[in-house]
Design a protein around this nucleic acid. Structure first.
Lengths: 153, 153
DNA sequence: TATGGCCTTGGAGTGCGCTCCAAGCAAGCG
DNA sequence: CGCTTGCTTGGAGCGCACTCCAAGGCCATA
């Protein structure tokens, strides 16, 4: 891990299909759309608000995304699933851009997010219990109805 | 369970603090605000959009919430946590208002929600793994820094 | 009687996260 | 050459879930 000197966030991302090897990793925006499920609008918007770490351009000014950009988008996707506000992700992106001396702050931000995720999982499991209680109530009601139907017949 | 004849959704809600016994259960909007954490605006809005099952009024036209209303708000709160759109909750409320013959549809709606919640928990656990990987990366970096500091001293 | 507190309404406004639009440029093809 | 496809931009618009506002009613206490 961490083969490049600085201004990076890499630390063990899993391999990904349809991805070209280092050196030839140059994807158009529509390829990235296909990989990530985001729209081109959203990708450009992410860049405008500072959520992307400077994307390369072709000689004609078109965006060319690298493997590292895809890794970053994977992380952003995960963080988005946690419900983290975009503003916080932008903050994290800024910390990454600022260099290695922000490790501590990044650590804290991720720790806080981790706590949020744990809390959210707990909430959801709580909700699941309520849901299961109601579902079995309705399932019972169905069974009773079926039984009553049988009796009539 | 299900002591009242129809047009109800009750099926085993846990007891709740600061709640008055049946018969004297008549809460002002500000009491409900204190119980639920919702704003009065939101409570009135829920009613306007058909998410509440008709709230009682005092002789002067002020809202008087019952224990059943509080139960309903608890459920709505849980469903909201799952990310269920308000429109879907309104649909569920409509089914409850329509009576017992909608049991099947309610069952399906809850089942679908249950599947969503399970998927969401899985996503979050996935994210948690990513987070943990990054967090331990930064924690290691901190340890190395501390060690380097020691060496210099 | 007046002051304050709590409530009422319809409708307008807000913040977030996109989502889309119009106008235009560059490359490839028949 | 004209046409299509894919990309570019700044800025406007949208849907959701609230959130707030202005204007007013009711009533208890001083």
């Amino acid at each position: 891990m961490e083969t490049t000197p600085t201004r990076t966030d890499s630390c063990g991302a899993p391999p990904h299909p349809h991805r070209r090897p280092e050196g030839q990793d140059s994807y158009t925006i529509s390829e990235v759309v296909a990989f990530t499920g985001l729209t081109a609008h959203t990708l450009r918007w992410y860049e405008r608000i500072g959520l992307m770490p400077h994307v390369d351009r072709s000689h004609t000014g078109q965006r060319r995304y690298s493997n590292r950009d895809l890794d970053w988008l994977d992380l952003v996707g995960k963080l988005r699933l946690t419900g983290m506000p975009v503003a916080d992700m932008v903050r994290y992106a800024e910390l990454v851009r600022e260099g290695d001396h922000t490790y501590g702050e990044r650590f804290e931000l991720l720790e806080a997010t981790r706590r949020d995720v744990l809390a959210r999982i707990a909430e959801l499991q709580d909700t699941l219990a309520v849901l299961d209680r109601k579902i079995s109530f309705y399932a019972d009601a169905e069974r009773v109805r079926a039984y009553e139907g049988e009796k009539v017949r």
